[in-house]
Design a protein around this nucleic acid. Structure first.
Lengths: 141, 141
DNA sequence: GTAATTGCAAATACTTTGCCACGTA
DNA sequence: TACGTGGCAAAGTATTTGCAATTAC
C-alpha cells in the first residue's frame, strides 16, 4: 500500500516532466530516505553520488516542488530541506537547537481545524502548513 | 503596558551583555518594526543604517537569540528572520508562496497542548514552536 | 585595566544561472 | 526533429569569521 517510484514517476509525467534516469534515482532516494533531505545530502547519498550533478538535482527538486510532488521545508538550518509529499502523511518535526537532530513528532497534528478556518476566511489556495518544535534535547541539556 | 527599549536593555544586561549604542538602536528597531526582520532589512532600516555594521547586527542578533530575547524564524525565505520574544505574544504566520507576503495569523494558536505533551514525553528543555501556513493569496491566484 | 564589543574585510556556505551537448517524446 | 533535460563551471546571495581598534564596566 506504500507509494512506489513507478507511481511517482507517473505523477511527474502527468505534470509534463520527462522520464529520465536522474528523475528516477532522485525519487527513489527521497522515497527510501523517508525524511527531509538537503541538496548536499542528496548529492552525497550513495544512490545519487556520481549519478547526476548537483545542478540537476537542484533543478529537479524545483520542478517537483512546482508540481506539488515534493515540498520544501525550513527546519531552521541554513540549507533547505526537501521531502516527498505523500498522500497519507503529514509530519511535524521536533528539532534540537543544540545538536540539530530532527525527529518527526509522533502525534496527530492539531492544526487541521485552524487551517480550514484560514482557507475559508482568507481565500488562500493550496494551503498547507509547517509546524516545528524547537528545544534542547536531553542529551544536550 | 507595552515593552520599552529600556526594559529590553535591562534584560540584556541581566544576561551579561553590555549597554552599547548598537544594542539600543537594534532593540528599538526590532520593537518598532513589530514583525520579523531579516539581517539585510535591519541593516538598511533608517534607524540602523550607517549606525552600525552588518557584522555587529549579526553578532548582536545571535547574542540576543542565545539570551532568549530574540527568536530566529524560518519563514521559508533564503534569509533568516529575527523577532523579539515578547511576553504576551506568540504568533503564527500566513505566507503567500507567490508574492512572499507575510501576515500574522489572527487566531489563537492550537498547538499549546501538544507542546506540553512533547515537553513531558521527551524531556526537551526550552521548548517552543513555529507554525507557518503557506499558500497562494487571492491576489496571486 | 580588562574583557567585551565594533568595524572592516575576507572567507564560507548554499543557491542559482548560462551555455552547449544530449536524450526523450 | 524539437524541446525539455543534463553536466560543468561560474556567478550570486546570505552568512560567518579574523583581527586590530575601541568602548563599557
Amino acid at each position: 500500500m506504500s507509494t512506489s517510484v513507478g507511481e511517482l514517476v507517473d505523477l511527474c509525467r502527468a505534470s509534463g516532466l520527462r522520464r529520465t534516469k536522474a528523475l528516477e534515482v532522485l525519487l527513489g532516494t527521497l522515497l527510501q530516505a523517508d525524511r527531509p533531505m538537503t541538496l548536499a545530502k542528496l548529492e552525497k547519498s550513495r544512490r545519487l553520488a556520481s549519478q547526476c550533478d548537483k545542478a540537476t538535482i537542484y533543478r529537479l527538486l524545483h520542478r517537483l516542488t512546482d508540481a506539488g510532488i515534493v515540498r520544501r521545508l525550513g527546519l531552521h538550518e541554513r540549507a533547505a530541506y526537501f521531502a516527498l509529499v505523500l498522500p497519507d502523511q503529514h509530519r511535524d518535526y521536533l528539532i534540537c537547537t543544540g545538536c540539530g537532530s530532527i525527529a518527526p513528532v509522533d502525534a496527530p497534528c492539531p492544526v487541521h481545524d485552524l487551517e480550514e478556518e484560514i482557507r475559508t476566511k482568507t481565500g488562500f489556495q493550496n494551503l498547507y502548513h509547517e509546524l516545528e518544535f524547537f528545544g534542547t534535547c536531553p542529551k544536550c541539556t
